[in-house]
């Protein structure tokens, strides 16, 4: 077991327009990518972000050693409830997830 934050090269989150956010998990090599791709549980990710699993879009991109997860923003960008204009810090919730 290892923390995703320790395994990944980089965790990146960003707006994908005002209504979506997208998170990219960059893995350093194919072996770690396979491990992350196999072990990262989509339902656990959805639970972390408080959204239903079926609204998550997940792309496992072996060619780039990247797992990408997109979801509708829980709060529309810049609305009264929004806390992160660029959705740039949302990736860090994933850092503590345990990967087999």
């Amino acid at each position: 077991m290892a923390r995703l934050g320790d395994l990944a090269d980089k965790l990146r989150a960003k707006n994908a327009g005002p209504f979506w956010l997208t998170i990219d998990v960059f893995c350093p090599d194919a072996e770690i990518y396979q491990r992350v791709s196999r072990s990262l549980d989509t339902a656990a990710v959805a639970a972390l972000y408080g959204v239903p699993t079926q609204v998550l879009k997940r792309f496992d991109i072996a060619a780039l050693n990247v797992v990408k997860i997109s979801m509708p923003r829980p709060n529309v960008q810049g609305s009264r409830e929004d806390r992160d204009m660029h959705a740039s810090q949302w990736a860090w919730l994933l850092a503590d997830l345990e990967i087999d």
Binding site: K14, N15, T22, F59, A63, L64
Partner: peptide
């Protein structure tokens, strides 16, 4: 190829 292909990820909900 990686630096170029990776840009499809950026600010894009669907990279394809």
């Amino acid at each position: 190829p990686a630096s170029v292909a990776a840009h499809m990820l950026y600010e894009n909900a669907d990279p394809f």
